[in-house]
């Protein structure tokens, strides 16, 4: 799904502007990470796309069509979102029921429903848990069920809204692995990952850095992530390894280029 923001401004109170005349385009089938400190407005972007909020001024175009109250339902059918807290998004008493919930709402045929539940629970490695109660799962497993639920709707756009920030490192790894494999499947889905963990932005096609309601950096991970001054001014931090590269660039030492290259590589394969 192609997403276009044209001069979008949003605020709750006029004196505290959340998004300030924001314009950007996300191309269909790409993965974009939107990063920024807490309160930078990054989650507001997700809420605007799914129509939970309306711009104060400006327009949002989805697949070149202006998002309005009239086509909101039709647009929403093409997107899915995974939220921060895995405990707040469960409705079913088994994993299977939970994945089925959205499908039932859309009156999907029973056989098709079963096919999708099997397919997508396998994709997130949760096929063995279909009969289990979601309450007894770990945080990472819960989020994977939530992802399967969204995938089962076969949406064009999947938004991860800080979906790892309440998980332990094991859960975070599981979710990152799932997002990464979704991206690598190249199935034409558009993925937006909203996060403040720079490590999670490493494998995106493109990173938008938000500060004070404006985009302050826009580019590939290798362009954006070493920009220490702007990242720090935006309440973010340079990944230790990249910061090391910046320090080493300033001095001379044996096999400098090879070592810098190797550090770079190790960061992106971590």
């Amino acid at each position: 799904m192609k997403i276009e923001f044209r001069n979008v401004t949003f605020y709750y109170k006029k004196s505290e502007v959340v998004l300030d005349n924001l314009s950007f385009t996300i191309e269909d089938g790409t993965m974009t990470a939107i990063i920024g400190h807490n309160g930078s407005g990054k989650s507001t972007i997700a809420k605007l796309i799914i129509g939970l909020l309306e711009p104060v001024s400006g327009e949002i175009y989805l697949n070149d069509e202006l998002l309005t109250i009239d086509n909101l339902d039709e647009m929403r059918a093409k997107m899915g979102i995974i939220f921060q807290n895995p405990d707040n998004q469960f409705v079913g008493s088994t994993v299977k029921d939970d994945i089925a919930f959205g499908l039932e709402n859309r009156l999907i045929e029973r056989e098709e429903m079963i096919r999708r539940i099997e397919k997508y629970s396998r994709l997130v490695n949760m096929e063995e848990y279909l009969e289990k109660n979601p309450e007894n799962l770990s945080g990472g497993q819960k989020q994977r069920v939530a992802i399967a639920g969204v995938l089962a709707m076969e949406s064009d756009l999947i938004i991860f809204d800080e979906s790892t920030s309440m998980l332990d490192p094991k859960g975070t790894k599981e979710i990152n692995k799932t997002i990464k494999s979704l991206k690598n499947m190249n199935n034409g889905k558009t993925i937006i990952s909203i996060t403040h963990e720079l490590e999670e932005a490493l494998y995106a096609d493109r990173i938008l850095v938000l500060n004070g309601g404006k985009i302050v950096l826009d580019g590939s991970p290798s362009d954006v992530l070493p920009k220490k001054d702007i990242l720090e001014a935006s309440g973010l931090k340079v990944i230790d390894g990249l910061s090391l590269i910046e320090d080493l660039k300033k001095i001379d030492f044996e096999s400098k280029d090879v070592i810098l290259e190797a550090i770079w590589e190790s960061i992106f394969t971590m």
Binding site: E199, D240, G241, L244, D247, I259, A262, I263, S266, M270
Partner: peptide, 30 residues
């Protein structure tokens, strides 16, 4: 491991650096 230690190990495995004590921080690896 801390991220920096992972970087250190990967450089060591490529034969680019040697160390006795595993570097834990950016300054140590530097």
């Amino acid at each position: 491991l801390p991220d920096i230690s992972k970087v250190a190990n990967s450089l060591k495995n490529k034969g680019l650096i040697t160390f006795e004590a595993l570097p834990l921080t950016k300054d140590e690896l530097f």
